[in-house]
Design a protein around this nucleic acid. Structure first.
Lengths: 352, 352
DNA sequence: TTGAAAGCGCTACCAG
DNA sequence: CTGGTAGCGCTTTCAA
């Protein structure tokens, strides 16, 4: 990418000299008190004629209510803090969409942040978001710094951890067992006749969910007496498509007779399949490849990729529902800690 | 996806009976006035001993300053409103990362929203975000409702439109000409010897950038006298991988002798290539396929995909810089409207 | 270097 | 159904 050019054109922009309109301006123009304007905005009962006059004044002035003032005065904001490891991952962005679908109709506004699979960054973001007094918090995974936990517990607002089933949750949980899902995939491969099954995943421990899948793979390989686990751990999260090729090479270098590869994610599986093509290996005849996550690429690639489907949107939506229930429910002390178990399914496709 | 199960476990949560700590609580505990606490938080000059005492009180109480109160009092928030069509698209999430890289170190916080390629939704989000008095706004594209424009102009804060070069920008602009980039790809294909070049893209007019690419294709096909344009428009934005297969089929149905396909995005190109494999067509020997965007899949698929590389991260970073310059610069009336032209490059790979 | 008072723009509360 | 008063938690401004 070369240099880019910058040109500057002078121009003017209309702007009220007295600054933006305030509620008192609207009130004066409509000939009512501030309170009446406030009621119109909140949808409280106001005489129709009055309401119309106020609305007209609002439109005329282009009035936009100040949310900070409202939040300060009423003691509650409309924010929901949401933290995901990566916004680019289609599964997490589906989860965000699910959250949006559940929460936006209630007038809540998402305060989104991506942690980049970095627990310290997560802590910084939580701290920064809590300053805005969110009504509740949704975050990803079970692994957090001690400070993050303390911060969240002290805040006293509802918290949901998503995408996992921690044994010691902060508050509520919406997720599934990544280990069990991985075990199910191993059983599927075994049932299809594969016996020398490898696993490729990331090297870091930051991606707890990936680590759980590896754990499940190991457990089930042992349970089915399929010999020594064949594990390649390479690269950091997020696992991208470019992970698959070198990981597959490493696996086949060490265990050339491998007949099936289970990948920590569809991204990696896709990269591995493309590398099989380059090596002249036919999938699944020479080697089977399975993914995880049911990303779009798994349905569109050739061959299509056998994978574990997780209802990412559902995780978001159920999380939204859980948070709403907590908001409309009891005080924190009495609140029950909800645990929502999300389903997953092995999707049999062409690659394994 | 079947049903999911819900279990509920009662548990209690620690919570101060008097609610969260306030600045006055910190002040009392440290034996200073609120002002001194405020100065410590803002990093203003305070005697070291005093500062340490205050900090200790803050830690002890787990005090988190209320951003809404601060914003109200000081008259300015730390928010930057950011709107992209889709958070899942890797190009837009790269842009968001670029924005984050530029703005977070300045203590600014992104208020993120995805418009879902829906101008009315964009308007709603802008309205909702403006309530939080953001310091500035970054949005995608040149197409907005009249109300959105009015809202933004009236707000008087710096605005950047990204990913396009509108002829009548709201304020500043950071982007490139999608039409020119598409023309460059047509010239590339012509230079490689292809003469019967088709184009596949979305049907809707919502994706202005996709439409500009189609326009550029048409212009260059005519300029190079390559016959009648062969255009298939199918499906809505965002264009995903599943777009490519049916679009390719439609194109070859109508113009069976097509020797190259230019796709509105790498997603579509990937789907088209996989469909070629299914049809027994070799890429690029039987038919060439080119994409747009240099998404990860274009570098990892087999064959690798020839595409137009756009510095999506750079768009975000430059936008952040532009906004910061505006914030630190003159008042709106005097401000110059900046125009930043971002580079793009045709990346020659295996598919065309 | 520190403190006291005033007030940001809005909503809760109680009167009328 | 409508209005006045008080005050949310913080920062500004001025004074000490």
């Amino acid at each position: 990418m070369g240099n880019s050019s910058t040109t500057v054109n002078a121009a003017s922009q209309s702007l009220d000299p007295s600054g933006p309109a305030r509620m008192s301006d609207v009130a004066r123009l409509a000939g009512v008190s501030k309170m009446t304007v406030s009621r119109v905005l909140a949808g409280h009962s106001v005489a129709l004629a009055t309401r119309e006059r106020v609305q007209q004044a609002i439109d005329e002035l282009g009035y936009v209510a100040d949310a900070a003032a409202g939040a300060l005065s009423s003691g509650r904001s409309e924010f929901v803090a949401v933290l995901v490891p990566s916004l680019a991952s289609s599964n997490f962005s589906d989860t965000v969409r699910g959250l949006t679908a559940a929460l936006e109709p209630q007038g809540l506004q998402l305060l989104l942040g991506d942690t980049d699979y970095d627990l310290d960054r997560e802590e910084r973001l939580v701290r920064s978001m809590l300053r805005h007094q969110p009504r509740c918090v949704a975050l990803t995974g079970a692994q957090h710094t001690a400070a993050t936990r303390t911060l969240l517990v002290r805040s006293g607002i509802p918290v949901v951890e998503m995408w996992d089933l921690p044994s010691d949750p902060i508050d509520a949980v919406v997720g599934f067992s990544n280990a069990k899902a991985a075990r199910e995939m191993v059983r599927y491969l075994q049932a299809r006749g594969y016996r020398r099954i490898g696993f490729i995943g990331g090297a870091g421990d930051l991606d707890r969910r990936g680590y759980e899948r590896l754990k499940g793979y190991r457990q089930e390989i042992r349970a089915l007496s399929l010999g020594e686990p064949r594990v390649v751990r390479l690269g950091d999260s997020p696992i991208t498509m470019s992970h698959g090729a070198p990981a597959l090479d490493a696996l086949l270098d060490q265990w050339p007779d491998t007949d099936a590869v289970m990948c920590v994610s569809d991204m990696s599986a896709f990269g591995a399949i493309m590398q099989c093509h380059r090596r002249g290996l036919s999938v699944p005849d020479d080697i089977a490849v399975a993914g995880f996550g049911n990303f779009e690429v798994s349905a569109c690639s050739h061959p299509t990729i056998t994978t574990v489907s997780v209802d990412a949107h559902g995780i978001g939506y159920r999380t939204g529902e859980t948070l709403l229930a907590a908001l409309n429910g009891h005080r924190a002390q009495d609140r029950a800690h909800t645990k929502v178990n999300i389903d997953y399914t092995v999707i049999a496709r062409e690659s394994a």
